[in-house]
Design a protein around this nucleic acid. Structure first.
Lengths: 333, 333
DNA sequence: TCGCACAATGTAAACGTTTACATCGCATCG
DNA sequence: CGATGCGATGTAAACGTTTACATTGTGCGA
């Protein structure tokens, strides 16, 4: 019976033993679905991610899972592939299955989201272009990180700095471009639309951007790529074309994926602890869950860290120190 | 009412419209949890993974999610950190929440698993050390892949080939060691316990193994690392110590993570399509779901592909071809 | 005109838990 | 000795759906 399994209400010791014996004998396991119907809590958190791809995603999940496990929650995962209808479907099928929601969707606009999100649900938005106080949110300091990288390049003497952008409909991309512009302006550098080469966060678009950049006159002396993947594409192209980095042109990027330090030359980038982002989001979600309906949404911005390596020309370090090795632990082959 | 939402039973057009109007007006959304109580299906698949870490895991999830989404299923994710009790807890809290299970757990033994798995549940085992016909299973051809890599090294003239192993309790690791031994024997090479250096799949253990290998007399001419992460550790150590690869010592590994081709020198490895593994598993699971109780468990082994790059000394290719670039697409920064 | 078949709709049981409440036995106290 | 209170246990309603079944309404052939 329910009272002995959950230690609720008074129950005599003998009875408890008798019940437990029967439970064992019949291999009875409670049906969690039925329980959550009456309890109105599922111990499940819904997680909506933009794309199930690459290090970024896996890091985010790792942080989220760590916090969830610690709090006794499970994760209902959904990777929404940018499609609006799919987002809606995913949201809908979460109803009645989850206690709260973590949504990371840099390319979905705020109104769509808030229109389809259930009223009273605890929701944490990660890196969403949603303004206002409607929901809790945690964002990466894209603007500050980008400005730091561009400032770093400027401090090395560069004044003609190209920015290879991310997609226009991506919130992170827009923020990073903003940081780029601010830093260029602050450094008294040149700021034109021509210096912004459109990309889409893929390696391939970086590869293509390389030729565009090399065609510019006078040739820019530095590039800030909006993410590491595009920087890798740029490096590949430069290597093929015999352009030396950072000798002929300096390069900085954003994300600091594990690959970055293994590139030749090693890639200067802006690091952000994605796992922390996820873990933090969950902690806030649990807090909101406790507070119930009387919860004031709050907004947080996670700082970034500039990692100067060889591609920006600031550092002559040859090999990575061992201390960083252990970070990339892989339990599974 | 249920009949109009699900298009079951006869219902007049006018009534249907009237009901739908009310549904819209009240913003009614069905409670999926309650529905699954009576229908006895949840449209959710439980996924148990060894560790939520790195490319390997994210690729697996990606394949699983792709197939699940296509079939209208959602994913209940759980990363079990090797702990037996946690595995049991995870399994238990899946009861009543999922229609089927995908379990990837290279370090859990078969008896533990089959003892705690519900009787009639459709379950697919990935890379598990579970023998017999109890459950469906899909495995990677670790043995064959390892043998291919070692054979590749032998064909380049190497006879004294070291194997840096994975953890002993890991099924993949044991299989790969078996492949190593078979290939060495077949090539008439030296086969001693001394040539097997213990590792644990981490970069750090690879780094440490490097010094062990360099201390051997006569010095081995080639190394087969049981996974890429350890090979990266080896490369770091060799670089620091001024040992040239493949000049002084050749190196081959296993997994072909995206990083492999960006290392200097680029890393020869054994590729396996993890995403395919996941997708395949889901398809089989759905098939089992259809068949109901009358389903014969079947076992499958996924082939691997040898990718010879510079670290093994077989190939002088300098930069990766563009065609491979698009594979590493990252939607999110 | 009266059944009759059949389509449309209303009704209630069922799924497997939790929990509020009723009941019962027992000891203590007036 | 009977009333009171309390700890232990039994009972049934509730959660939000689906579905089998009962009921009602309608047109049609006999």
């Amino acid at each position: 019976m329910s009272r002995v399994l959950n230690n609720k209400g008074p129950v005599r010791d003998a009875t408890s033993r008798r019940v437990r014996a029967a439970v064992d004998r019949l291999r009875y396991v409670p049906h969690i679905g039925a329980r959550s119907l009456i309890t109105r809590r599922t111990s499940v958190i819904g997680v909506l991610l933009p794309d199930l791809f690459g290090e970024f995603f896996s890091e985010a999940i790792r942080g989220i899972d760590r916090a969830a496990r610690a709090a006794g929650y499970q994760l209902l995962l959904s990777g929404l592939h940018g499609d609006r209808a799919q987002t809606l479907t995913a949201l809908r099928s979460m109803r009645g299955r989850v206690d709260g929601l973590v949504v990371m969707s840099p390319s979905v606009d705020g109104s769509t989201l808030s229109a389809n999100l259930p009223e009273g649900w605890p929701v944490i938005l990660l890196n969403c272009a949603v303004d206002g106080a409607a929901f809790d949110s945690i964002n990466i300091d894209n603007e500050g990180g980008a400005a730091a990288m561009v400032g770093h390049l400027a401090s090395l003497g560069h004044r003609r700095i190209v920015h290879v952008t991310g997609p226009d409909d991506n919130w992170d991309a827009r923020e990073r471009r903003g940081g780029y512009r601010r830093a260029v302006r602050a450094a008294g550098g040149e700021i034109t639309r021509d210096l912004e080469v459109p990309g889409d966060f893929t390696e391939e678009s970086g590869y293509r951007a390389a030729r565009v950049v090399l065609g510019m006159r006078p040739r820019p002396t530095a590039i800030f790529a909006a993410n590491d993947a595009m920087a890798i594409g740029l490096l590949s192209a430069f290597q093929e074309l015999g352009v030396r980095v950072p000798g002929d042109i300096a390069l900085g990027a954003f994300d600091d994926i594990p690959l970055a330090r293994f590139m030749t030359p090693s890639l200067s980038s802006v690091a952000v602890s994605i796992a922390d982002l996820g873990e933090r989001a969950m902690k806030r979600l649990f807090a909101a869950l406790e507070d119930g309906s009387r919860h004031v949404p709050c907004h947080e911005t996670l700082p970034t860290r500039l990692v100067a390596r060889r591609s920006s020309g600031s550092c002559s370090q040859k090999s990575p120190p061992l201390s960083r090795l252990s970070r990339t632990r892989r339990k599974d082959p």
